[in-house]
Design a protein around this nucleic acid. Structure first.
Lengths: 129, 129
DNA sequence: ACGTCACATCATGATATCACGATATGACAG
DNA sequence: CTGTCATATCGTGATATCATGATGTGACGT
């Protein structure tokens, strides 16, 4: 019972859906998500705790950063749910923008490891038309 | 995006999970759910509206009663989610009790149609041992 | 057409959740 | 063992959700 409710809570907020959608692309550390998803670090962190309580994600430490990943148990179910609304999600402008920014942040990794802290990504390109 | 969030909201409350679990057994009218799930009619109704907004259930009128059913589109997904936690749900005492009471209420139908209004089910048996 | 009955909606107060800034923690480098 | 930096937690005020009782609505039988 409670497991289902916690899964529901994980999915019941647009910000958390954005986070899950991003994690479906790739494991990400908190600093990468702060930049890519453009939200306050404390806001992001508390949503991550909510998702973690649902057993949907797990953490691992990589150097100074904490990396979040979908759990092996939850991933298929999350994929199924997301897939059932894939087209609506892909049409969402916020989601599309997140995708691009996640990829940009991933490009900055060295040897697949995040080397840049939160809020340090040069976004001067973004202000150009 | 919003569809996923609404689905999440439908699942994010224990009372709504109970309702969905009951509807997985059988279509039910509101009066049957009031008795079987032992909740106030207005409480039940507002949860049903939440679930309906998520596109998970649809209604039809049968005589005076309104019958709720999982939609054909949502049912497979709901089944998948429930199944992924089937054992935990079956272990839930509240859910188990609901199951019994739903079956009792269904037994009272004539020709598969509910004939008894809300709060009219004789529960004198329940107070025995 | 008029009640009646099942259901929906409203009003309210209590509790939970949200975003955000400030502060705490704790792992690593030096 | 000390500072630093990434992340977690706390505090707060605004908003949303909950359960419940009162009231509204609309389809059916008479």
């Amino acid at each position: 019972m409670n497991d289902v409710v916690l899964l529901g809570k994980a999915l019941s907020d647009p910000t958390r859906v954005r986070i899950l959608y991003a994690l479906l692309q790739s494991d990400l550390c908190v600093c990468e998500m702060v930049d890519a998803l453009e939200m306050g670090q404390s806001t992001l962190s508390s949503h991550l705790q909510t998702i973690r309580q649902a057993g949907v994600v797990e953490t691992s430490r990589r150097h100074k950063m904490v990396s979040y990943a979908l759990t092996a148990e939850a991933r298929p179910l999350i994929e199924t749910i997301i897939d059932s609304n894939r087209s609506a999600l892909e049409a969402d402008r916020r989601i599309a923008r997140d995708q691009v920014r996640v990829q940009e942040r991933i490009q900055l990794r060295k040897n697949d490891v995040c080397v840049l802290g939160p809020g340090q990504l040069d976004r001067s390109e973004d202000t150009k038309k």
